[in-house]
């Protein structure tokens, strides 16, 4: 492997711009959809399980176990059932995203002070009303942090999706790795990695913005 000339990456970048944009868009899309799926399922599960000790521990433990499965293995396991491409990728990413979302929803709802809960009940709010108009808004920053962590996790793991012919910038990283030693090997790998970092930073900025816009001034840190 010869010395690498960094100045070559720019012409490479311009040359492949259309493809890079396409792969980045795919990457963003696959993360968005899978985190959305995980949010719908995870927040619902959290809302349902937060006050049921057994279910609560079981769901957090299960989501935790899923996260310990190596991503390659999980994706490979899905090929027989779901084939290649988008579907196994979305399912795997959604599963990985579950833990931070479920856990933070449960923790956030449980952290609402007992005095607040008791005065809400004492004023004649129904349990559903307490959940939606008192607990959820107070737990919101914690839940949102869960979504943020889940998103970062999904952005990283999505790059492995190329292994099952999935979408996203992983395609470039795998291509680079598979042609190691060739002229453009590092260009591919580096472009993929840098774009993923940029996407991660943009998502993070987006979450900071959402948090500011949707958290009551009364509980902003």
């Amino acid at each position: 492997m010869g010395k690498y000339d960094l100045s070559l990456i720019w012409p490479f970048f311009l040359d492949k711009l259309d493809e890079i944009i396409e792969l980045s868009t795919e990457h963003v899309l696959v993360v968005l959809i899978s985190v959305l799926l995980a949010t719908i399922f995870g927040v619902s599960l959290g809302l349902f399980a937060w006050d049921k000790p057994l279910l609560r521990s079981a769901s957090i433990a299960t989501a935790g176990v899923i996260l310990t499965i190596p991503s390659m293995a999980l994706l490979a396991l899905m090929i027989p059932t779901f084939g290649l491409g988008w579907v196994p990728t979305l399912i795997a990413l959604a599963l990985y995203s579950l833990l931070p979302i479920v856990r933070n929803t449960v923790v956030g709802l449980r952290e609402v002070p007992e005095a607040v809960m008791e005065s809400a009940r004492g004023m004649g709010m129904s349990p559903l009303r307490v959940l939606l108009s008192v607990q959820m808004p107070i737990a919101w920053p914690v839940i949102l942090t869960g979504l943020r962590v889940a998103t970062q996790l999904a952005i990283g793991i999505a790059s492995i999706a190329a292994y099952v012919a999935g979408p996203g910038l992983g395609v470039y990283i795998f291509k680079g790795l598979s042609m190691l030693g060739a002229k453009n090997a590092l260009n591919f790998a580096l472009t993929g990695t840098v774009m993923i970092i940029i996407i991660a930073l943009l998502f993070d900025a987006l979450f900071i913005l959402i948090k500011r816009l949707t958290t009551s001034r009364g509980i902003r840190g």
């Binding site: 607040v116 008791e118 004492g122 004023m123 009551s216």
Partner: peptide, 30 residues
């Protein structure tokens, strides 16, 4: 239960104001 409680004022030691609501919103709850 909830109808009953709306007709009984309730004040506890830890106060339990709703931190995400303004003072006016807190007073307006019932």
């Amino acid at each position: 239960q909830n109808q009953l409680r709306r007709n009984i004022g309730y004040v506890i030691q830890q106060i339990g104001l709703f931190p995400h609501m303004t003072i006016a919103e807190n007073v307006a709850v019932v």
